[in-house]
Amino acid sequence: LLDWSGSQKIKKPALKTMKNAGVQVHFLNKPRFPFFFFHMQKRNHRKIAVIDGKIGYIGGFNIGEEYLGKKAKFGNWEDYHLRMKGEGVRDLQTLFTADLKRNTGSAELTPDVWPELQQGNISHKIYATDGYSLEKTYLANIAQAKERITICTPYYIPTKSLQQALVKARKNGVAVTIIVPMKSDHPLVREAAYTYYSELLDAGCLIYRFYQGFYHVKALIIDDHFSIIGTANFDQRSFFLNEEVNVEIDDKAFTKEVYAT
């Protein structure tokens, strides 16, 4: 499944090669009337891979040369991706199937891709959004913070409510740290983020810029036990336009590993 707008650089010979090999290739969210411009902006930003119905991958990595560090402009590409086994894999495959059916009208998968799965050992929830409710979820998580909030994002374009929530948390004694890239892969995005920084810095929040390549991590970490890792950026496209999917993980040991990275 390929997002139509985000996959325009794929050459026709490459698509033909895949199809000739038996690969099913479908484009999601093709522009259509009567809301042509809206559909041009709406993106399927989910990154899902499921292997044999047993192993799932989700996170920030797309499939492209820049993610392998092969574009000198960006250098090494810093990102988070989760490898999952257990019950959560079925949730990823269910979401993939729903996207397939919604865009093609059919989602026939053989029974063997839905194997019986063992229960996992880390409490988590897979949370898919489609241009709504993500802001509300982040606000609720930020309000629960007692000690620290860490936001990792390539694009910091918050809503007014989220900006105020972070300032309020800092004034209430919660340490707020935001990590963003030094380099930008989209024109004006970095400059747009600057308009929000002064208020955060005045409140005592810490903002770090990543210099060793391009920083594409999408994560929200609360205190010592709660982490959100997935596809959503901390920006208004992810909040109100894109189709996204995050994994919410409530586990101290796992969160400790995230902080260590």
Rank of each mutant, 00 (worst) to 15 (best):
L166D: 00
E108H: 12
R148V: 01
Y67V: 15
M84W: 04
W77L: 04
F254K: 09
I157R: 03
T159S: 15
K42I: 10
A143R: 12
R43W: 04
V189T: 13
G120E: 06
G86N: 09
Q144D: 08
L2H: 08
R43E: 09
L200V: 05
T153E: 03
Q8P: 03
D99H: 03
L68D: 11
P158N: 08
H124V: 00
D250F: 13
A128T: 00
P13E: 07
T150K: 10
P111C: 01
K19C: 05
L139T: 00
L220K: 06
L201P: 02
Y80R: 10
A219W: 01
A193F: 05
L2D: 00
K125M: 01
H81E: 11
R170Q: 14
H225Y: 13
R170C: 11
Q144S: 10
A14K: 12
D130N: 10
I149M: 04
D235V: 01
N141M: 13
G120K: 02
K16I: 11
T97R: 14
T94V: 09
V189W: 09
Q164T: 14
T150N: 03
L166C: 03
T195L: 12
K54D: 09
W4M: 05
V167N: 00
Q8G: 12
E199F: 09
A219I: 02
F240V: 03
I228W: 08
Y57Q: 06
Q24H: 10
K252I: 15
N103S: 10
P154G: 13
F239N: 09
L15Q: 04
M182C: 05
E65L: 13
F214Y: 15
L188E: 13
D235R: 05
H26N: 12
V23L: 09
H216K: 11
T153Y: 08
M18E: 04
S123T: 10
N62D: 14
G88C: 08
I229A: 07
R102W: 01
K171G: 06
A165R: 01
P158T: 01
V174L: 06
L220I: 11
A203P: 08
C152N: 11
V113W: 11
T94N: 14
G53A: 05
T137F: 06
H26W: 11
G59N: 02
K183Y: 02
M18W: 15
G53T: 07
V113D: 02
P158E: 01
P154H: 07
I122N: 00
D223G: 08
K47Y: 01
H225W: 12
D79W: 07
V180T: 14
K19F: 02
G75P: 12
M40H: 05
L92D: 11
Y156P: 02
E243W: 04
M40S: 05
Y132C: 00
H39C: 03
D130Q: 10
I222N: 00
F27E: 03
G59V: 00
G120D: 02
G88K: 07
I63P: 05
P181H: 12
E248G: 10
L82Q: 09
D251E: 07
I51L: 14
